[in-house]
Nucleic acid binder design. Structure first.
Lengths: 353, 353
DNA sequence: CATTTGGTGTAAAACGTTTTAAAATGGCGG
DNA sequence: CCGCCATTTTAAAACGTTTTACACCAAATG
């Protein structure tokens, strides 16, 4: 059906090799032949068959994107940026969701490697150092996005997570909060660690004491966030909560609602990651916003830079994007100790989403 | 590097063709040879090279998914279902976002066809009838999801949109609302039309008069929804709003907040599509929920059914999934006419997100 | 016994490229 | 006029499959 390179060659009255050279610019071709070939291509509407090319070159014009959490719109933004770049360069994008599961990540890596994708953009799970190693071993270009891995010799793009958390906590401290609970994220990933570091840094700098027991292990899902927030709130010790990601912020809201606590009157809340609903809620949520689209766009750019300069790979680059504290209505000065508020309702409440 | 079919053949002491036959089951192979071949495959860890196969068969084990709106989590759920199916069948999934732009849709269709994807799952833009026609012309399997197109001879999976809207409006009517505004969706797509039909049906059945001017052209983005909601609210005529999709519900919330109106005291609000934030907001949103994951999962199932029964294509099937009305707190009986509430603030407010 | 028939196996062609190695062309100095 | 080099072109080999067409053999048929 579709025209092949052979048809083009015949029509232009040249050899197949010449056509190939014109298309790929791999060799000098005299201007006259070049013109003839281009005319033939035009007339036939010829497009090189991707499989023939892929078979010969051992690689297809396809890149892969690995995303750890499909419910978090933050990653949808990152994917947007990567997709934009892929389109720019005429590559197809295979997007896979690992759902924080190293096993699934491993599966996808091996299956995509076998498919000979040209490169990877990955926001790794906690086991990334291991699961991604086959990519490096095969010498396939890899860019890490959002979550970085110390010492891995690849391009890495992330936000200034420590700085973001630092700003958020300083904001709460300035308002007068002293007991600030944290809904922590997935362990063993850089974003969680960096944000916790920012939290501690703000306390250290202010000279105020920090109660490590207020750092509740959350994770990444709504239910987990809700449970963690609930136990934090029921302890009656905190006047503010810092939620380390989008989804857990929703969980915290759920718990507040369930316990009949009002925000910011009873508890202040700061989230990490802005989102479309964060602005329109009542109260509007104070959040640390990342430049999520830009994260993806930049990661894509770095990947293609590497793909284009194939023979001489550039030195791995690490980029950190600024974060922004958006103050809305969910944070205010603490009013009264929380414990009184809760006394009436007992402590046997169980999360039920 | 990786083993080829040739290596397997040599190791098993058979011909290449035999190995191929064992792998694909395309011909009978004697048990003894079969065993030998399988052993060789095992030992070498052989996996057929996808490009060789694709080149020969003119098609790769890859399917494409076209999504019209990247910000709406509803579509992320659909994508989840499709991805699950793709994994099940060992296919890769290329996901592209058209952003409601027929031009982009056309571009992706042509580029994916040229890539020889094995099939498409598409939630089409308003121009779907035209932009998708090249797929049919080439005889590539296609499944429509969420938005259907009348008379197109392909599998189609959607929700009972009319029924969902009908339930929502009946709920509002039963509460006593008579002037119900609608934030309408993208024109010329089935979901919008069906939901509007449900709206009208509920009115018709109740015998109450319907004011067509309360159907405000929204579209699909937050800003559009906010503007439409604002003009509806400023008219002072409505006591309830039915928002036809997720994103516009957020827009409506934005307008409510901006105008200082409370929900449900001043205005009741019903949205289409449930979401993670809808439940935890204050007030919790009353919504018509779709089985979004299932939509995608089913669409994928239908696509692979068609791919597997290639020589004799089955009759196109149309599936409609039940919708559910989830009543939360954003809908209540109307209290006082809205016009009084708004009199104090004038009508020169402009959307500013 | 000669000839089909049906079941297994294989060599070789084909899919559409890119690239290597060799051939043709043309200009130039000897 | 010949040989030599530089430049441009091309034929052919490869990439790894699937599939067609044929070869082989044993059993069944006439």
């Amino acid at each position: 059906m579709a025209a092949t390179i052979k048809d083009v060659a015949k029509r232009a009255g040249v050899s197949i090799a010449t056509v190939s050279n014109v298309i790929n610019g791999s060799r000098r071709v005299s201007p006259e032949l070049k013109k003839k070939v281009q005319k033939a291509i035009e007339e036939l509407g010829y497009q090189p068959n991707p499989f023939g090319r892929a078979l010969r070159k051992g690689e297809s014009s396809t890149i892969a994107l690995l995303i750890p959490d499909r419910s978090n719109p933050f990653y949808a933004q990152i994917a947007w940026g990567v997709e934009e770049q892929a389109r720019r360069y005429g590559y197809a994008l295979i997007t896979c969701h690992t759902d924080e599961d190293p096993g699934l990540e491993e599966f996808y890596v091996s299956s995509l490697l076998h498919r000979r994708v040209a490169g990877f953009v990955v926001a790794p799970t906690s086991a990334g150092r291991d699961t991604l190693s086959p990519i490096l071993r095969r010498g396939v270009p890899l860019v890490l996005v959002d979550r970085v891995i110390e010492g891995l010799p690849v391009d890495q793009v992330s936000s200034d997570n420590e700085g973001g958390a630092y700003m958020a906590i300083r904001h709460l401290l300035q308002l007068g909060h002293r007991n600030i609970g944290v809904l922590s994220g997935v362990e063993d990933i850089s974003t969680t660690q960096d944000r916790i570091r920012g939290y501690k840094k703000a306390f250290a700098e202010s000279g105020l004491p920090l109660d490590e027991s207020l750092i509740a292990p959350g994770c990444s899902q709504i239910e987990e966030g809700a449970a963690a927030a609930e136990s934090l709130l029921l302890s009656g010790e905190v006047t503010a909560i810092f939620s380390i990601n989008n989804m857990m912020t929703l969980g915290a809201l759920h718990s507040l609602k369930k316990l009949g606590l009002r925000c910011p009157e009873d508890v202040s809340l700061v989230g990490f990651d802005d989102s479309e609903w964060a602005a329109v809620m009542t109260p509007g949520l104070t959040v640390v916003a990342q430049q999520s689209y830009e994260l993806g766009y930049l990661a894509g750019a770095l990947l293609f830079r590497r793909l284009k300069r194939r023979p001489k790979p550039p030195k791995p680059r690490t980029v950190k994007l600024r974060t922004i504290l958006i103050i809305r209505e969910s944070t205010a000065e603490p009013r009264e100790p929380l414990s009184g508020k809760l006394a009436a309702r007992g402590s046997s409440v169980v999360a039920n989403l």
